[in-house]
């Protein structure tokens, strides 16, 4: 046990104008309903493929934010849980011929299992060392994926069948799949919201705010950190599994460290430690990648510029800044 008070990422971006406490909980409810309504009619205006990409990454970013924003843990290898789940889902659907629901479930379990193993190693260290260990483990997993036969190396798993949901609903139609992805996304978002606002979430926030104090109150901080790590990696696994079905593809890109970086970017741009921030962040990044695709490699440069601007000008992220001005907790 060390007495050194490490500075958690959550502490780096402390709002200077703290939100009012004791806000109407119905605010979240209304925003959630509004978000649902928008997403229900969104396919009328936007391509389902684009929307599904957005939702998969938004869920991934929300899962990551659960760990960073509420657990105060900066994992720099979250692509592993996302990408490995994509591979397992793809393999299950294509080679084993399982249905989409079982395939995604296996993906989620992959995220959970890897999260348990990697998390147990990484939480032994704090701050930057924690991040370095998650990155190192993720790189090991990347090279495993590069060499393993079932991942098909550079080719990845292609033409993954979407199958029939519960053996009934044909998912080959993008518009049908969109509503399935939307349902999973909303369920994931509600799940995360519940975790944050649970007795467990309270202890978790206490540990993020002041770990030695939480320990002195009798809470075993390591166990809570591991629990939130596993919850986060499980949801990241769900996102990865859905992504494999949407694109019918699972490749090395999904497990590469740049993917880990991207999810950090989405979360920070949107607003870490806010419920809706990562969704906004994912929307910004995915939109840029889609509509600026003709710029080629310049997309990365634009992304980098946005990230720099974000860190310099509004460290709380888009939703964080809005929340600060309205003095709301979003």
């Amino acid at each position: 046990m060390t007495m050194v008070q490490h500075i958690s990422p959550a502490q780096l971006a402390k709002p200077t104008n703290p939100p009012r406490a004791g806000l109407p909980a119905s605010l979240y409810g209304r925003l959630f309903i509004a978000l649902t309504a928008v997403l229900l009619v969104a396919p009328l205006a936007l391509y389902p493929m684009f929307l599904m990409t957005l939702l998969c990454f938004a869920l991934f970013a929300c899962a990551f934010n659960l760990l960073l924003g509420y657990g105060g843990l900066l994992s720099f290898g979250h692509a592993v849980y996302f990408g490995m789940a994509a591979y397992v889902t793809g393999h299950a659907a294509k080679v084993w011929g399982l249905g989409p629901e079982l395939s995604v479930l296996l993906g989620a379990l992959t995220g959970a299992g890897l999260g348990l193993a990697f998390g147990a190693l990484a939480i032994r260290r704090q701050g930057i060392y924690f991040s370095m260990i998650t990155l190192a483990l993720a790189q090991m997993a990347f090279f495993f994926c590069l060499q393993a036969t079932f991942t098909h190396g550079e080719d990845g798993i292609q033409a993954i069948p979407r199958g029939h949901l519960f053996g009934l609903i044909d998912l080959s139609d993008d518009r049908v799949l969109y509503y399935v992805v939307l349902a999973v996304f909303l369920a994931g978002l509600l799940g995360i919201f519940r975790i944050i606002h649970s007795p467990f979430g309270q202890v978790l926030k206490a540990i993020r705010e002041n770990e030695p104090r939480a320990i002195s109150l009798g809470y075993n901080a390591q166990r809570y950190k591991l629990a939130v790590f596993v919850l986060s990696s499980t949801i990241a696994g769900v996102a990865g599994g859905m992504k494999a079905l949407v694109f019918q593809l699972a490749t090395l890109t999904d497990v590469h460290w740049t993917m880990s970086g991207e999810v950090v970017l989405m979360t920070l741009v949107g607003g870490m430690g806010t419920v809706f921030g990562p969704i906004v962040g994912a929307a910004v990044i995915v939109t840029m990648q889609n509509y600026l695709a003709h710029l080629g490699a310049w997309v990365t440069v634009v992304q980098g510029a946005i990230f720099v601007a974000c860190v310099l000008l509004f460290r709380e992220g888009i939703v964080g800044v809005i929340a600060r001005h309205l003095r709301w907790r979003l």
Binding site: K14, P18, A21, G22, R194, I195, H197, S198, P199, F200, G201, Q202, V203, K205, A206, E209, N210, R213, A214, L217, G218, Y219, N220, R223, Y224, A227, L231
Partner: peptide, 29 residues
């Protein structure tokens, strides 16, 4: 103290110990 919890929540986190370790992430606060 836990700076970004309310004053009430600060005390409640300690009182919460009475109900065990609160790993129940599926229950409402």
């Amino acid at each position: 103290v836990f700076p970004h919890l309310t004053v009430l929540e600060n005390v409640r986190v300690a009182l919460q110990r009475q109900r065990g370790f609160s790993f129940d992430f599926w229950r409402s606060e």
